[in-house]
Simulated scan of single mutants.
Amino acid sequence: MRILVCGANGQVGREIVDRAAAAGVDVLATTRQTFDITQPRQVESLFERERPELVINAAAFTHVDNAETHSKEAYAINRDGPACLARLCAQADVPLFHLSTDYVFAGDANVPYKESDPTGPTGVYGASKLAGEQRIQAACPHHLILRTSWVYGVHGHNFVKTMLRLGAQRRALSVVADQVGCPTHAGSIADVLLTLARRYREEGRLAWGLYHYSGTPACSWYDFANEIFDQGHAQGLLAVKPSVSPINTDQYPTPARRPAWSVMDCSLFENTFGLQPDDWRSSLASVVAELGRQAAEDRGAPKRSHA
């Protein structure tokens, strides 16, 4: 099965490419430098030339604060690009898998968001991602939109890597404690997408639609940071665990407003596909271990003998 992966240099895209061979699929990996989804002629040309059997769109403008001042670019990548892919997928009768975000919600709830709950993004990033969802739903019948949250992993920029870097530099840190969400491993998202791609290949159909998928259990950024430091210290990435103080959002102002509540109900996804979201603490352990291995290699640590 030949899968076109857009955004192959991002957190999830890299994981899809790395895991594709084991999943038994042939991946055409593209980045914005080689394939711009906002350019219809490029998209049309690639579809005609490569004839993908399924498309996974992991490309996105994800810098939440920069989106406020670069709204044109954010909408081009998060709305217009997906719309272009959806149109070509529909014409070629090819399914489109697309990643979206918890930021489509206002974040003012106190129970997990269901797919049917009203949306209400509070910034450009969330609004542009919601617009992308709507364009796909209108143009491509065979779509799978996966909303996820607080993505972290070995690749790219994310909270885990930032905390480990700051934890190695500082003895004390302050982290927001009044925003609650669900950390989600990029590798887990990749595994889910590849599993569903295989099912489509084998069965010729899938329960198309919009779903929520994120790690469990819910926690605050403060809780997440503490677990990162515990595991980083245990893996030898941090010589000393920094002390962490909880602060409120208003003590850490940002250009874009963050949702206070980013917890999503994943029961529809679980019941439909029989796939359980990962416990983020276990997935975090594998990420921290890999980052530790990479750090050891960078330091020129001697390799273990297999003799």
Score class of each variant (00 low, 15 high):
Q179P: 00
T249K: 09
Q169M: 15
A172H: 14
S220K: 00
R170E: 03
L196I: 05
M163V: 01
V263M: 01
M163I: 10
L144W: 05
R199E: 13
Q231S: 02
S262T: 11
G181T: 07
G156V: 01
D230I: 07
S262L: 04
C266W: 06
K161Q: 12
V151R: 00
T249R: 10
Y200Q: 12
P246L: 01
N271Y: 09
T216L: 15
Q235K: 14
P242S: 05
A225Y: 07
D191A: 13
T272N: 11
W261M: 08
P253F: 11
R198A: 10
V180T: 15
A234M: 12
E203P: 05
A218L: 05
K161I: 07
R171A: 02
G153T: 03
A260F: 01
A197M: 09
V160N: 03
L193H: 08
D223L: 08
M264Y: 06
H212Q: 02
T195C: 13
Q251C: 09
D250W: 14
Q169R: 15
L237S: 08
V263N: 03
H185K: 09
A225M: 03
K161P: 02
H157K: 13
D223P: 03
A260C: 00
L194G: 04
F269C: 03
H142S: 14
I189W: 05
T254F: 07
V176S: 00
K241Y: 01
P259S: 13
C182L: 10
P259C: 13
I189Q: 09
S267E: 14
L238K: 08
R199S: 12
S262Q: 01
S220V: 01
L210P: 04
A207H: 15
E203W: 00
T272D: 07
R147D: 02
R171S: 04
L196K: 02
G204Q: 14
E270M: 11
A234V: 05
A225H: 07
R170K: 13
R199T: 01
A186Y: 08
N271R: 14
A172S: 14
H155K: 09
A225C: 00
Q169F: 13
L173P: 03
F269P: 06
G209W: 13
W221Q: 08
A239W: 12
E227I: 05
Q231K: 13
R201M: 15
A190S: 07
L210C: 06
E270V: 09
N271Q: 12
T195H: 12
V151A: 10
L196D: 05
I189V: 12
C219G: 06
V244D: 03
Q251W: 06
A256N: 03
L144R: 04
Y222T: 07
D178A: 10
N158R: 07
S243A: 14
P183A: 14
A177T: 10
R201T: 07
A218N: 06
P217W: 10
L196H: 03
P255F: 12
H212P: 04
A218K: 13
F224R: 07
M264Q: 12
S174D: 01
Y152A: 07
T162W: 15
S262A: 15
A190G: 06
V175D: 02
A207D: 13
L166E: 08
G232S: 06
F224N: 02
C182F: 06
V263L: 02
L210A: 07
A186Q: 04
F273T: 08
L196W: 01
A190V: 09
S267Q: 15
K161L: 01
M163D: 04
W150A: 09
R201G: 10
A190C: 10
I145V: 11
S243Q: 14
